[in-house]
């Protein structure tokens, strides 16, 4: 009885404090590194982040800043070294279909068809459903990503964009509470990329589920996200200040290009990223133990000459 009395006021306080929607995922002082002893390499340090229910959060950062490690921690594929990482108040100890991960390189099983790949996840997650119910569910998601005509094909017969659609459908079909997108479009060409961006956006606007996306493309982040959090370059990567994207939805990339708010935000995020990278390089140079080499101030001789075409020079 006494415990109930004690916990009651606490929960009241928590509810009254939060004006924003409840955070679904909370990261407090999360650190992650690899190796031990002298080969120890800290990748992420002091990560603090609240992912709010129903928001689209984009993490942007340069390659090598620990983005993939960050996503693996959220997915539960890697465990944190220190700090707390919770979802709905429960500590994340391993992977779970509640946090659906879309892999960067699709990770489709090559021996299964499009339908088979999606069915594998549906059958594993919704074991209690009837056979027919599961089959209908699979078809629904094949249709959602527009692959009904290719449902019988295997991944090697599909284009990169189609593969990522299958991967997306496979994850969405698990009905995850949080959708994790690990650079889902970085392996695609620019045209396919923009088409898929709009499609992800469309699907998200229908479902409005919590979504965390990692990307190295600032434009993409602004197009899809409610908040953008830059990841400072590693080692010892931490999160930068969040940028709130206050552009009206539904957004269209063609319209955004002319919007001043879009341009301003893009400059702000890009400038921040460039500045932190510059700083991190300077820090690295300052702490490095490697002997400093003074580079001579030289310029190739040919560069100094005025440009003369070899044809005219011959004359």
């Amino acid at each position: 009885m006494s415990t109930a009395v004690l916990t009651d006021p606490k929960t009241k306080i928590r509810v009254s404090q939060s004006s924003a929607p409840q955070p679904i995922i909370q990261m407090r002082e999360v650190c992650k590194g690899f190796g031990s002893g002298v080969t120890r390499n800290e990748v992420l340090t002091n990560i603090n982040l609240n992912v709010r229910e129903g928001e689209f959060l984009a993490i942007v950062g340069f390659s090598g800043s620990g983005k993939s490690t960050f996503m693996k921690l959220l997915a539960g594929l890697e465990t944190i070294d220190s700090g707390t990482l919770t979802m709905d108040g429960q500590t994340i100890t391993g992977p779970n279909p509640e946090r659906g991960l879309v892999f960067q390189n699709y990770s489709l099983l090559p021996w299964l068809t499009v339908r088979g790949n999606i069915a594998l996840s549906v059958n594993s997650v919704f074991r209690k459903w009837g056979r027919g119910e599961r089959a209908d569910h699979v078809e629904k998601f094949i249709e959602m990503v527009g692959l009904t005509h290719a449902a019988h094909r295997r991944p090697h017969e599909l284009s990169g964009g189609m593969r990522q659609r299958v991967s997306l459908a496979r994850t969405l079909a698990m009905k995850p509470k949080v959708l994790l997108l690990d650079e889902p479009l970085s392996a695609l060409d620019a045209m396919t990329r923009s088409v898929l961006q709009e499609e992800i956006l469309k699907i998200w606007e229908e479902e409005r589920q919590t979504c965390v996306m990692i990307t190295n493309d600032v434009d993409e982040a602004i197009l899809v996200a409610d908040r953008i959090v830059p990841l400072n370059p590693g080692p010892n990567a931490s999160l930068g200040p969040a940028f709130t994207v206050e552009l009206d939805r539904p957004r269209k990339s063609s319209e955004l290009n002319h919007s001043d708010a879009f341009k301003g935000l893009r400059n702000a995020v890009t400038n921040y990223l460039v500045a932190v990278r510059q700083k991190s390089r300077e820090d690295e140079a300052a702490t490095t133990t490697a002997p400093k080499v003074e580079l001579p101030d030289l310029e190739p001789l040919a560069m100094k000459l005025p440009h003369v075409s070899s044809l005219t020079a011959a004359k």
């Binding site: 997915a75 594929l77 279909p97 099983l109 021996w111 594998l120 997650v125």
Partner: peptide, 26 residues
């Protein structure tokens, strides 16, 4: 491929399912 095994982990496949559905076909 580690990615296939990650798929199995996210789907929480049992040991036998992981063997028959992922490892052997791969």
């Amino acid at each position: 491929n580690q990615d296939y095994l990650n798929v199995a982990r996210v789907l929480k496949l049992s040991w036998a399912q992981q063997l028959y559905k992922i490892i052997l076909p791969a």
